[in-house]
Amino acid sequence: MHEWLDSYEARDWQTTGEGTVRYALVGLGWWTTDVALPAIEGSDLGETTVLVSGSAAKAERIASEHGVEHGTDYDGFHDGDHEGAYDAVYVGTPNATHLEFVESAAELGKPVICEKPMEATVERAERMVEACESAGVPLMVAYRMQTDPAVRRARELVESGFLGEPVSVYGNNSQPLLEMIPNEDQWRLDPDLTGYGTSVMDLGIYSINTTRFLLRRDPIAVQSRLSSVGEPFDDVPDERSSFLLALEDDVHMVSTASQNGYEDTRLQLTGTEGRIELRPAFHGECSLHLARDDRSVSIEHDAFGAEEEMREEFDYFADRVLTGAEIHPDGNHGLTDMRIVRAIHRAGERDASVRLRE
């Protein structure tokens, strides 16, 4: 088994160790303050210089607590407050509000890293891509799994033939949302803010995008079943979700996702010669489990949780901004995921297979 692992390089994407990208962080929910902000503080190539919230007082208070130079509100950001104090923008607001901040950042000529899913609908995500392309600024979608060392090692193994020919994929991503955030009025349960639904948009997208990254194959058709049985989920169609994706080269993928389940994340790829499993996969502390030739091995990354994943993501983005190198995953990559999610919801509504392309 060791011959498959000897050549691994943790930051195979890194091209520079010099320079600093100064960030404006837009949206000061718990993910930004508890994960993204400390991730940038621990990064090699980043610094937070501006915080942006719906409340200027909140932004200034959190800025003071973290030693950040400036705080402003959303209107101030749109008006260009402190634009000389930052080089790039991180957008971490609810899905349906991403577009307005990305458009303003593009008008200011600032590279953008935007949380996934890109927006509430495909059409609004397309407008984001158009705004950045018209302004000539980079847009990266924040798929942190793509810079996670375990995932990158898994892709190296796939490309080196560890699986043989890929055959099937199984994914799951579930969490008890209302235990984590005990508020039935939160935005993830509001269709005007979350978009097509809650479980596929927020959780299922991890299985979809990580599989696309690992196998370099996209879905061509989908089937799905979506249901909501608990009263807090009455306004969204997918408290529970399952979907079958037919990928290129006849690889079959089955995945489930739920915002009202025991926390469990996994992604398993099976080929003609071996198996690669990420377990846990998506909520930090990603671990790699390999099997081939009647032998198995597990690889863990000490103290590598969500904050460390975000640190890698921000350093990757900064590396690309500083060197002018091509960014992946870009907006068009994220648009593919949005179209897949839309197709999953349409398939559930119609109880029929939906083709993504002929």
Score class of each variant (00 low, 15 high):
residue 98 H to L: 01
residue 22 R to A: 04
residue 52 V to S: 04
residue 168 S to E: 11
residue 294 D to M: 06
residue 101 F to C: 02
residue 62 I to Y: 04
residue 101 F to P: 00
residue 19 G to A: 12
residue 33 T to L: 14
residue 323 T to L: 02
residue 57 A to K: 11
residue 163 L to G: 14
residue 143 Y to T: 04
residue 110 K to P: 08
residue 70 H to P: 05
residue 255 S to K: 06
residue 17 G to T: 11
residue 197 G to P: 01
residue 63 A to I: 02
residue 238 D to Y: 05
residue 141 V to N: 03
residue 267 L to T: 10
residue 230 G to W: 05
residue 50 V to L: 00
residue 186 Q to E: 07
residue 291 A to C: 03
residue 246 A to T: 15
residue 23 Y to L: 14
residue 60 E to P: 14
residue 270 T to C: 05
residue 192 D to W: 04
residue 200 V to Y: 08
residue 19 G to W: 12
residue 331 G to M: 09
residue 167 V to D: 13
residue 187 W to C: 06
residue 63 A to E: 03
residue 130 E to G: 08
residue 341 V to K: 04
residue 21 V to L: 06
residue 75 D to H: 08
residue 7 S to R: 09
residue 3 E to M: 10
residue 79 D to P: 06
residue 141 V to D: 05
residue 203 L to S: 14
residue 318 A to Q: 11
residue 115 E to R: 03
residue 43 S to L: 08
residue 344 I to E: 10
residue 313 E to P: 08
residue 26 V to D: 01
residue 3 E to D: 13
residue 246 A to G: 14
residue 149 P to R: 13
residue 253 M to V: 01
residue 80 G to T: 07
residue 186 Q to S: 03
residue 190 D to K: 14
residue 294 D to I: 05
residue 248 E to K: 14
residue 187 W to Q: 10
residue 277 E to R: 14
residue 248 E to G: 14
residue 145 M to V: 10
residue 306 A to G: 10
residue 291 A to S: 15
residue 39 A to G: 10
residue 281 A to Y: 15
residue 8 Y to R: 11
residue 224 S to F: 03
residue 31 W to M: 15
residue 158 V to I: 01
residue 252 H to N: 12
residue 201 M to I: 03
residue 79 D to T: 02
residue 96 A to Q: 12
residue 213 F to E: 08
residue 306 A to M: 12
residue 46 G to K: 06
residue 82 H to E: 12
residue 54 G to S: 12
residue 336 T to Y: 01
residue 1 M to Y: 09
residue 136 G to W: 10
residue 13 W to L: 04
residue 300 E to M: 09
residue 54 G to D: 10
residue 100 E to Y: 01
residue 116 K to T: 07
residue 147 T to H: 12
residue 172 N to L: 00
residue 94 P to W: 15
residue 246 A to K: 13
residue 215 L to R: 00
residue 287 S to I: 00
residue 172 N to V: 11
residue 241 S to K: 13
residue 224 S to V: 04
residue 266 R to E: 13
residue 346 R to F: 06
residue 244 L to Y: 15
residue 117 P to N: 11
residue 237 P to K: 03
residue 348 G to A: 01
residue 49 T to N: 02
residue 158 V to R: 00
residue 48 T to W: 01
residue 338 M to C: 15
residue 101 F to A: 00
residue 339 R to Q: 15
residue 324 G to C: 04
residue 84 G to I: 00
residue 258 S to T: 09
residue 228 S to D: 07
residue 68 V to H: 07
residue 348 G to N: 06
residue 281 A to H: 09
residue 34 D to Q: 12
residue 292 R to S: 04
residue 169 V to Q: 11
residue 37 L to A: 09
residue 204 G to S: 13
residue 195 G to Q: 06
residue 300 E to K: 05
residue 104 S to Q: 01
residue 261 G to K: 02
residue 32 T to C: 13
residue 178 L to H: 02
residue 152 R to C: 00
residue 172 N to H: 10
residue 320 R to Y: 09
residue 196 Y to K: 02
residue 325 A to V: 00
residue 16 T to I: 06
residue 254 V to A: 05
residue 259 Q to K: 07
residue 206 Y to M: 01
residue 246 A to Q: 15
residue 270 T to R: 15
residue 171 G to D: 07
residue 341 V to S: 02
residue 52 V to P: 02
residue 248 E to I: 08
residue 106 A to S: 08
residue 236 V to S: 05
residue 19 G to E: 11
residue 348 G to I: 02
residue 217 R to C: 00
residue 27 G to H: 01
residue 73 D to Q: 01
residue 196 Y to I: 04
residue 174 S to M: 04
residue 48 T to A: 12
residue 47 E to T: 13
residue 32 T to V: 08
residue 158 V to Q: 03
residue 325 A to M: 11
